[in-house]
């Protein structure tokens, strides 16, 4: 808890996709709030980024070991779980090679399901936990080439929703946060030559800032947000609520 984050956390937070731009920002904000953080990265370079920020972490290899690793390196089983993990695979539906499709399913759906299973089983032994899945507005409105990305995000939302339904009676709740345009990660690449046009189409005429999304994540991950359970929150400045004709970009 600090001036920028009024929320308190009763145990360690496990963050997957921790080495992404948003992941690093979230981990840092949690650490500044006094929360112990254990980050998971998918590459050695990602793990190095975590270490450079002073964040305890490990490579995501066998998801089933993640809770024990968290207990070893952050002092306890994860009490909070934020999932920002995602591969960079994008393709037109018909443009993906069969083997790549199988790899996508294993990485962007299977691995997430295994990690969520392992983390929530650990949470069950404490009868307490809060899970947040960081999704994308593209889950509902994919641009051409985002079908696999969107399908994986929808699968993730569905898994987290079911966790919230199945385990709420055991003190474990979950929700998803769909983010709109942000100038981080793949969003930065997309907005490279489109930022001004995208901002003009936003109801508030400005793009969301990464720090604003972190503030929302800090709240949604906290116990105070338990009532936002088995639900998906959209944070896109109202962009997706506008009529389709003014959403052309």
């Amino acid at each position: 808890m600090n001036a920028r984050n009024p929320h308190a956390y009763a145990g360690p937070a496990l963050v997957s996709g921790a080495s992404s731009e948003l992941g690093l920002l979230l981990c840092t904000a949690l650490l500044e709030s006094g929360c112990r953080v254990f980050g998971l990265a998918r590459s050695a370079a990602g793990l190095e980024r975590l270490r450079a920020k002073g964040i305890a972490g490990a490579l995501l290899r066998e998801p089933e070991t993640a809770p024990e690793l968290c207990a070893t390196l952050a002092g306890a089983y994860p009490r909070y779980f934020a999932d920002l993990g995602h591969s960079r695979f994008e393709s037109l539906v018909g443009g993906a090679a069969p083997a790549r499709i199988m790899e996508w399913a294993a990485q962007d759906i299977g691995l997430r399901a295994r990690l969520l299973r392992a983390v929530t089983r650990a949470m069950l032994t404490m009868r307490a936990g809060r899970c947040l899945f960081v999704s994308s507005a593209a889950a509902l409105h994919p641009a051409p080439g985002q079908a696999y990305y969107a399908a994986a995000k929808l699968a993730g939302e569905s898994l987290f929703k079911s966790v919230g339904l199945e385990l709420a009676s055991r003190g474990i709740t979950a929700c998803s946060l769909r983010l709109g345009f942000i100038e981080t990660g793949r969003g930065r690449e997309f907005l490279k030559n489109r930022a001004a046009r995208a901002a003009a189409l936003m109801p508030a005429k400005k793009l969301l800032q990464a720090d604003e999304t972190i503030q929302s994540m800090l709240f949604l991950l906290s116990d105070a947000a338990w009532g936002i359970n088995a639900a998906t929150v959209t944070m896109d400045g109202g962009f997706s609520a506008a009529k389709p004709e003014i959403r052309e970009i």
């Binding site: 089933e64 089983r121 650990a122 069950l124 032994t125 385990l167 055991r170």
Partner: peptide, 18 residues
């Protein structure tokens, strides 16, 4: 079924077994 799920997780933790 949720009780069995909780029991399975508890066995995992108590005995350190898969």
């Amino acid at each position: 079924s949720i009780d069995l799920l909780e029991l399975g997780a508890g066995l995992n933790r108590a005995f350190r077994i898969d």
